[in-house]
Structures are given as C-alpha cells and as structure tokens.
Write a protein that binds this DNA or RNA. Structure first.
Lengths: 202, 202
DNA sequence: GGCGCATCTGACCAACCGGTCAATAGAGAC
DNA sequence: GTCTCTATTGACCGGTTGGTCAGATGCGCC
C-alpha cells in the first residue's frame, strides 16, 4: 500500500508527542499506556502497533529528543572550536526548553539512568551522554592544539566538566525555574564560565 | 510507655533505610511498599504506622538524605568563604556517594522534581535546592566583600552557577561513573574550576 | 496468671496496570 | 457493489498495586 508509510510515520510522531506530554506529567513508570493513547487520540491497542512496549516507546522518544539532526553546523569549520562547544550547549538548551511544559520529561528520563544496568532506556541516555562528551572532547583538543586553552591538559576531564556544567544548568532551569533571576542563568553563561576556569582566553 | 519513642525511632530509621535501597533499585513509582516492608523485615501494614503513604515516605527520605545536620562547621568562621563553599560541595558529594549502590535513588528523586506543582516530594527537593543556593550565595557575597571574587558582581547568579556545577557533577558521577577516568571527576575539581571562572584568586 | 494497651500482622480489596486478540471498520481495485 | 487486505479498536486477561482493618501478639504492670 502506498499510503502506508507516510501515514504510519504521522501516527508514529503523533504517539511520540503524546508520550512526551504524559511522561512529562506522570513520569515514565507512573504514566499509563491508556493515557498516552488517549492523548494521541487512538485506542490503547494501537500503541502496540507502533512500539513493542512502553519502555521501547520511551527509548524511541529519548532518541527523538536528543538526536542532533539539525546540528550539522556544529561540526562545520565555520566556528572556532570553543565557540562550537558553546553553540552545541546552546543548541541543547534551546531544544530542551522549547519543549515548554513538556520539558520535565527530560528529568524523568535522566532519573532513569541508574536503574538496572540492562535497562533499555538507561542505556540509551547513557550512550547519548557519552557521545556528547566525546564531541566536546574532540573540540576541546582542537582548541588546546591552537593554544586556546593553555591551562587544560586533560581534554577528557575538561569535557566532563563542561558537560556536567551544561547538564546541571539545564536541569536547574527545568526543575527550579524560579531559582534564578528574571533572565535566568543561561547555559552559555555557565559553560563559558567553566571555560574561563579551564584557562580559555575568552 | 517509655520504650515507645526510641523504639519507634529505630523502626522509623529502619524503614527509611529499606526505602532507600528499594527506591534506588526500582525507582519511586516502580518500588512497591511490600518490597520495602520486606527489606525492612516488617509486614506491609506496619509501613503505614509510620508513614501516611508511599509518597510521604519518599518525602521523609529526601529530607533525611539532604539535611545537612553535620555541616555545622560549614557555617563556622574557621574557613575562608570560598573554601567553605568547596567544603559544602564536597560534603554533599561525600554524603551522596557514601550511599553506595543505593545512591541512584537520588536520581529518581530529582527526576520527580517536575511533576504536579503540588507534589510533596518535588516541593521538598526544590526547597532544599533553594536553601543550598542561598547558603552559597551568602558565602559568595562575603568572599566578594573580601575582594576574593573580583570578576563576580552578581552573587545570586554566581551561586546558581556553582550549584548547577555541583549538581551536574554529582549527577554525572552517579549516572555515568565510567564516563570519566579512574580517579573520576571530583565535585571539588568542577566547582573550583567554576570559581576560577568567576574570577576567584585560587 | 491475667489485665490493658501499643504494636504488629497479612489476608483482603478495589483499582489499575501492560499487553493481547478476535472482531470491526475502512480504503483501494475492479 | 463487493472483494481483499490492512489499520484500528476496546473488551478482556492475569498480575500487581497502594492502602485497610479485624484480629493476633508481645510487653509492662499488678
């Protein structure tokens, strides 16, 4: 059938969006498949035509949320390495915050990282974090080779610091938006601050 | 009855410890009261003699885990303000990591911080974070008055950065212990790095 | 022993869960 | 219209949950 593929994809995205809302509201364990189906406007049984299980749905969602599909620019050579790290962090922040009221789902997902080691969702999140750290590490090394980070001789550790700063800041904005002032604490501020600490000449 | 009070307290702590283990393993929504009771060596019904509900149990646990009862030294004047901030962060890290295999419960709890606004557990976590930020802010201001942080003119923002760094680093250590090298990325390293960024003369 | 009382128990309950599947609806071909 | 095949449904299932409560248990006291 010709209509099948586009139709299926539309339903698939429809379900992902509904899952985003319900997972964000109730958590992943707390959410019920029935609620997700209702939010998507389909019957509960239909969910299982697109996903093997609730956990698989969550896994697909995390991949969908954190795939940096539009970040080609990040890897281009238009920007200096350090500026690219900042752009990467800002892009991450923007994508998360653009979820608006559904953003807390991210907290639930990261909260899952730590459960049973063979947990599908946890493995997915952990892999994404590892990839992010590696991307930052590569950029940091290039910056180091250019002499832009004189105080930093361990790019792995530096990348870990920057990633932790980025994650912590986004987490803070999601969980406690009223903790910081009006404009709020931007990820760019926090990460570039950490870069200054690394010895960057910015 | 004279025995009541100490006995009750012992049971109470016994249940908190069991909850820590089970919540850490299964998450808060995922954990069952029966499992917690079994881990504590009591019948399920007994849990409700000490806590109104599972959520209340989680709330008490979060208060128990994050109450800085032994941090009196932090507020003494034996250390310089900036050193005290570092001591505070290290104390937090130590307390969390000392939970060992049960530590992931912390992630689950932070993951809860986005649920319904009137969620008891979420409010508790948020309040604790706000208190921590305030404590750091006060110390930062003192350091600023002493001229130790010349580049920092907004203590609230500075405290938010330091807190986010601390939280992000602890989170990273809990969720992805293999992401950083052998010794790992310490909270002291990350926070003092952020302080250097703030302009501290350390 | 026996009384009084706080503590504890575990069978029980209604509600809900993730997941299944026989039945139904609907779209395109002719 | 009608035949075919796929997409969709929602009643249904076994299992589990948080929470209750009537009764058992144990301890201090007389």
């Amino acid at each position: 059938m010709r209509l099948t593929s586009p139709k299926r994809e539309a339903r698939y995205r429809q379900l992902l969006q509904a899952a985003l809302k319900i997972f964000g509201r109730d958590g992943i364990d707390g959410a019920s498949v029935a609620d997700i189906a209702e939010a998507a406007g389909v019957a509960k049984g239909s969910v299982y035509l697109y996903f093997d299980s609730k956990e698989a749905l969550a896994g697909d969602l995390v991949r969908h949320l954190f795939t940096f599909e539009d970040d080609g620019a990040r890897l281009s050579d238009e920007l200096e390495p350090l500026a690219r790290i900042l752009a990467f962090c800002e892009s991450h922040e923007k994508r998360i915050l653009s979820l608006g009221d559904d953003a807390p789902v991210v907290l639930h997902m990261f909260g899952h990282v730590g459960k049973k080691a063979d947990d599908q969702l946890g493995r997915g999140v952990r892999q994404l974090m590892a990839e992010s750290r590696f991307a930052i590490q590569v950029l940091l090394r290039r910056a180091m080779d250019k002499g832009q980070v004189p105080g930093c001789d361990d790019c792995g550790r530096g990348a870990a610091i920057l990633l932790a700063t980025m994650m912590g800041t986004v987490h803070q904005k999601l969980a406690m938006p009223d903790l910081v002032g009006e404009g709020g604490l931007g990820v760019r501020d926090a990460v570039s601050n950490a870069m200054r600490g690394l010895g960057a000449l910015m």
